[in-house]
């Protein structure tokens, strides 16, 4: 099994719901956004285009972050291809942060809280227990949710239904079909990392199918 995600740039409305749904699910500290979004603009008025591009770990088939890890903390899960960090083994050297071409890894050098001078609030006191200072953290496709039969939080929440999750090794899966039939492409393929997050082009032709997707 090779778990992967398809992000439909035609559907995405750039609302940042993915960034905050990830934050809410994983209770991450300030500045850590496993799911995030960038906006890019090109052209000259009035022929100008703006595009919102959601980003997250690409769970690459050839992950440079795993290769450079000196302790073996950064691993690729054999059963499904999820790239994750074992916080108990990570020593915080941050070689992986440098190696990742997607900026998908985060390191907190101190215990940042959102209401800085006030210290952690009740929520942060509870949720930050899940995070260890001094180690690298990243998206793991919400492994804890997958274990319960759920999709990653950003997929479940996306209000324009722009994120589809599944097994890219299964040719009959929705993600495989979309990549094959709707022109799915990865980011920075030249890095040779063989990403498992694919994007559908924003300007692709209509399906003309009135069937409402669930």
């Amino acid at each position: 099994m090779r778990l992967g995600m398809v992000i439909d740039l035609k559907r995405c409305i750039g609302c940042y719901g993915c960034q905050v749904s990830c934050k809410a699910e994983n209770g991450t500290r300030p500045g850590t956004t496993y799911a995030r979004l960038i906006k890019r603009e090109w052209g000259t008025f009035p022929d100008v285009q703006r595009l919102s591009i959601p980003l997250l770990c690409n769970h690459c088939s050839e992950p440079p972050c795993v290769d450079v890890c000196p302790t073996g903390a950064s691993q690729k899960q054999e059963s499904d291809g999820i790239v994750f960090v074992d916080g108990d083994v990570c020593v915080g050297c941050r070689a992986c942060v440098m190696a990742c071409p997607y900026g998908a890894r985060y390191y907190q050098d101190r215990e940042h809280t959102y209401f800085d001078s006030e210290g952690p609030n009740e929520y942060e006191t509870t949720r930050y227990l899940e995070h260890v200072r001094g180690v690298v953290e990243k998206c793991d496709f919400c492994r804890h949710r997958l274990a319960e039969g759920l999709d990653p939080a950003c997929v479940t929440n996306c209000m324009s239904k722009a994120r589809i999750f599944g097994d890219l090794d299964d040719p009959d899966s929705e993600v495989s079909r979309l990549v094959r039939e709707e022109g799915g492409f990865p980011l920075t393929p030249e890095a040779g990392t063989e990403p498992n997050v694919f994007y559908l082009p924003p300007d692709r032709p209509p399906t003309n199918d009135r069937q409402v997707t669930p």
Binding site: G17, V20, N121, E122, Y123, T156, M159
Partner: peptide, 21 residues
């Protein structure tokens, strides 16, 4: 009302509840 999906604001309400200010 939302069919299970929320915007960033709705997800972030928790930080208004526990805002120390």
């Amino acid at each position: 009302y939302g069919r299970g999906r929320l915007c960033a604001r709705g997800l972030a309400g928790i930080q208004m509840l526990y805002d120390p200010h």
